[in-house]
Design a binder for these strands. Structure first.
Lengths: 132, 132
DNA sequence: GACAACGGTATCCAATGGATACTGATAGCT
DNA sequence: AGCTATCAGTATCCATTGGATACCGTTGTC
């Protein structure tokens, strides 16, 4: 069997769902969306809340999210400028799946840290053993 | 208020949950885990199923997942060699949150593609307008 | 003894991410 | 009038990562 029996396949590199899946998994995008879950936030606030992201990368992330229709960008004609970012309805629909992931991550922190320690110790021993 | 009233905070760059959250969001890791959801798979099979990933990057991904205790690596003493990768119990517990994300991605493909087209068209027009 | 199968490494180059400095408009202070 | 601060970004440069490709070691088969 091949991948034909899967529906809208994320495993197919030509399937747009894969691209979208990876946009969600982007290092900063998912954090931004979760921050915006509480309402509109302006650029400088986002920078503080999603620490530590450089302005260039934050801009890239926001543009990508805007392009995909997950957030809106509202410029207020003021000086100094004020730009608000806000989730769209589609963006909000991402909050729940994302928060499940976040909960998973938070609840498995200790187990994973233990696994890392054990793995690293095993590596160290293997190295020591091979040199003696 | 600051971030103190959030529990195990993903937004805090010093919190391990953030690192773990981003490992899950890794471009290849999440795909590998979903492929392994159906049972153990050997290296070369993984390469085919998670197309298109280079061996170097696949190895990096697998080592990282192994280190975090999400998968196990089993070497069979054969020639040619056979190495199976398999989810641990913790790895399996990730399947459900991941599949929710996958379902979200798959179901929103058309909307997002439309949003992209609209955005790109608007950009094009803005460019044309500014040059005339 | 050449070749194929498998699970990787090694090497090199391109793309991405990140640190830092800077811009442009204006309001407020001195 | 000039200096400074605020804000939302750009511009520039460098480090890290990701990716393409070639190659390796082992052993069974021809």
């Amino acid at each position: 069997m091949d991948s034909k029996d899967l529906p809208a396949n994320i495993l197919d590199p030509n399937c747009p769902s894969r691209v979208i899946f990876q946009r969600i998994g982007d290092k900063w995008a998912s954090l931004v969306i979760q921050v915006l879950g509480d309402g509109p936030v302006r650029f400088s606030e986002l920078r503080k809340m999603v620490s530590v992201v450089t302005p260039k990368v934050l801009t890239q992330t926001l543009r990508a999210l805007e392009r995909d229709g997950l957030i809106t960008r509202t410029v207020h004609a003021q000086v100094p400028p004020r730009v608000d970012y806000q989730l769209t309805a589609m963006g909000e629909s991402l909050l729940q799946p994302l928060s499940m992931l976040r909960e998973w991550a938070e609840s498995h922190v200790p187990t994973i840290l233990d696994a890392r320690d054990a793995y690293d110790d095993a590596q160290d021993e293997a190295l020591l053993g091979s040199s003696t």
